[in-house]
């Protein structure tokens, strides 16, 4: 059946079998390869995308169910070609990844958290990424990346006068 999806701000259409998951449709029909298949049964989180800003598993959603939502994939986060978002850059700064396979889902989960919370605690970060399995890092540098990104976003969004009471720097 014909499906119209709003992906990363653009409406895309394709003729799809109802049994095709959003994951497979993103990869095969819309050529967005940043969303990865890990388990295809909803446990590992490698296929995480945002639906109206909330992380969901794209392997647990058929593409025919996904109309009407704002779908964000990892390709939708970079502000421009070759340019990284603050969170993406933070993952590079702390080396919050190794093989890169879980990374898009992990970054989208972190993105959703930091849209909600300016000063996440370690526990909140752990809860937010706990649905995404990383086999390489043991999560330490991922948690640090999210903390680092939160700090940078908070500073970037805080008026300078509030950051340095003297106002001189």
């Amino acid at each position: 059946m014909m499906v119209d999806l709003r992906i990363n701000g653009t409406v895309r259409s394709a003729e799809l079998e109802p049994r095709k998951t959003l994951l497979d449709a993103l990869r095969e029909d819309f050529l967005l390869n940043g969303t990865h298949a890990g388990c295809e049964h909803g446990v590992c989180g490698a296929c995480t995308v945002l639906l109206d800003g909330e992380p969901v598993r794209s392997c647990l959603l058929f593409a025919v169910q996904a109309d009407g939502y704002e779908i964000t994939t990892i390709e939708g986060l970079a502000p421009a070609p070759g340019e990284l978002s603050v969170i993406q850059d933070a993952f590079c700064e702390t080396h919050g990844l190794q093989c890169g396979y879980c990374t898009p889902g992990m970054i989208l989960a972190a993105h959703a958290l930091l849209q909600q919370t300016v000063t996440p605690t370690r526990e909140e970060i752990v809860e937010a990424i706990s649905a995404n399995i990383c086999r390489c890092t043991g999560y330490g540098q991922i948690v640090e990346a999210v903390q680092f990104a939160a700090d940078r976003l908070r500073i970037a969004n805080t008026p300078r006068a509030l950051l340095s009471p003297g106002g001189s720097k």
């Binding site: 940043g34 970079a78 590079c92 990374t103 898009p104």
Partner: peptide, 11 residues
């Protein structure tokens, strides 16, 4: 920094 990371964080 680890140079490989850039391409992976961008998907």
């Amino acid at each position: 920094r680890v140079r490989e990371d850039r391409r992976f964080v961008a998907g």
